[in-house]
Every structure is written in C-alpha cells, then in structure tokens.
C-alpha cells in the first residue's frame, strides 16, 4: 500500500516538469497543422515584402527616417505578424480548450496544475514564435532590409510583444462562457486599429495628435520601435528604449498573472 509521504514524493518529482509535458503535448499537436505553420511563416513575409517593399516603396523614393522604406517598415512588419498570431492564439485556442474540446480539463485531471498549463502553453508559443519570427528575419536579411548585426534581436522583441497582447487576451478568453462574437469585436476594435495606428507603415508622429495615444498603449508600436532600434539604429533616448521594454514586460507579466488566475478559476470551480 502506498503511503501518504510516498504519494507526495512521487507527485512532487513529476510536478517539476508539468509545464514541459504540456509544451510537449502542444508541439505534438502542431504536427496536425505544421504545413499551415510552415507555409504561413514563409508566405506571409514574402507577400508583405513584395507588396510593400517592392511596390509601395517605389512611391517613397526618399525613404523614411533616413533609411529606405523597406528598412523602415521591415521591423514593424515582422512585429505585426508575430503580434497578430499572438492575439489569435490568445482567443479561440484558449476558449476552445475550456469550452469545446475541453483539453485543459483533461490535463488538469492529472498531476499538472493550472499554472503549469499556462506555463506550457506559453513556452510552446514562444517556440512557435521563434520559428516564425526567425523565418521572417531571414527573409528581411535576404531582401537587404536589416543593416545592423543586432537585427536578430527582433526575434526576442517580437516574442515579448506577442506575449504583451496574448496574455491579457488569454486571461479574458479563459473567462468567456458563451461565444457571442466577442473575438470578432476584438479583432475589429483592438487588433486592427493597433495595426493601423501604431506607426507600422509611417512614423507615429504622422498620426493626428488625438489618435497618438493608441500608439502609446499599443504593444505593437513599442515592439516596432525597439525593432527599428536594433535593426537599423533608430535613434531614441535610452530611457525611452528601456521604457518600451518595461511597458511590454509589464503587459506580459500582468497578463500572465491574470491568465493564471483565470485558468485556476475556470479549472477548479
């Protein structure tokens, strides 16, 4: 007969790696839609770069910010791609795990805790974002759009930016009981405006003053500006660069705390 101390000891050992088992599961699940991930990882940047870099860039022969338009827009395109995937991953995949395929409940019936489910979910996404951002970065390099050697830092910055939008959205999604079109509304009222008014295609200073606040609250603007700093050396005061990192980290950390809390609430009621 197993005694109490033995049960606790065995479980403690297993529990240390709970988050990794969840990551492993998500990676294995990815096999089912790996062709989509790979195709979109290559196809997305290619279309953006051909359309904007080769097409739109011709209309702006002098470039922006002292660099060719493609160099200016490249980091923001990478960021907006990864942040958009981040926003998507924070919506249906989270709600579905509770409401439709209920996989989070299945995992929670084991030794794995709600916090570890969140941890594993995020680690898996970090791996996926690294791949997609890495491909995007290499394509930018191939198009000659990354002058500086520090350009690769766009990859970790994009992950930071993606988590800044993903975790608060996931916290919200985990609390939804019924799908009444909330996600379509988020797409239209949050994700799309963020894309349009975050200094993606043109500097934020071009936006009317009364719309500039969107940039300041938008993770995409901060991520794009950081991307430009490491990619072509956009000059900004050091405090502003640090502030941008701090804002993204704050979104991500507070979001992750709220996300964990929402998962605990939904899984243990």
């Amino acid at each position: 007969m197993t005694d109490v101390a033995q049960i606790r000891r065995d479980a403690a050992q297993t529990r240390r790696w709970g988050w990794w088992y969840v990551t492993e599961l998500r990676l294995r699940e990815m096999k089912a839609y790996i062709s989509y991930v790979v195709t979109s990882s290559f196809g997305n940047p290619l279309m953006y770069l051909l359309g904007l870099g080769v097409g739109l860039a011709n209309l702006i022969p002098d470039g922006i910010d002292g660099v060719p338009f493609l160099v200016f827009v490249g980091p923001a395109l990478l960021m907006s791609t990864i942040l958009t995937i981040g926003a998507e991953e924070g919506m249906y995949p989270v709600l579905g795990g509770f409401k439709w395929h209920k996989i989070f409940f299945a995992i929670h019936a084991t030794t794995v805790t709600p916090g570890q489910i969140v941890g594993g979910f995020l680690v898996h996404l970090a791996i996926r974002f690294t791949f997609t951002a890495g491909v995007f970065y290499l394509m930018l390099v191939a198009f000659g759009a990354v002058p500086l050697g520090t350009g690769w830092l766009m990859i970790p910055i994009s992950i930071l930016g993606a988590f800044a939008i993903l975790t608060p959205l996931a916290a919200y999604s985990a609390g939804i009981e019924d799908d009444r079109g909330q996600f379509a509304l988020i797409q239209r009222l949050i994700v799309m405006p963020m894309f349009l008014f975050s200094g993606t295609f043109f500097p934020l200073s071009q936006v009317p003053d009364w719309l500039e606040w969107i940039g300041w609250v938008s993770p995409l603007w901060h991520a794009s500006q950081l991307g430009r700093t490491v990619s072509y050396g956009l000059v900004e005061p050091l405090w502003l660069t640090l502030l941008r990192v701090a804002i993204l980290a704050a979104y991500g950390v507070i979001g992750a705390i709220l996300m964990r809390r929402a998962f605990v609430r939904r899984l243990t009621r």
Partner: peptide, 9 residues
C-alpha cells in the same frame, strides 16, 4: 494535496 491525489486517480 490536489496534484498528489490526482497522480493516483
């Protein structure tokens, strides 16, 4: 001891 119990169920 939720996780410990669940390890046995």
């Amino acid at each position: 001891d939720g996780p410990a119990i669940r390890s046995q169920l």
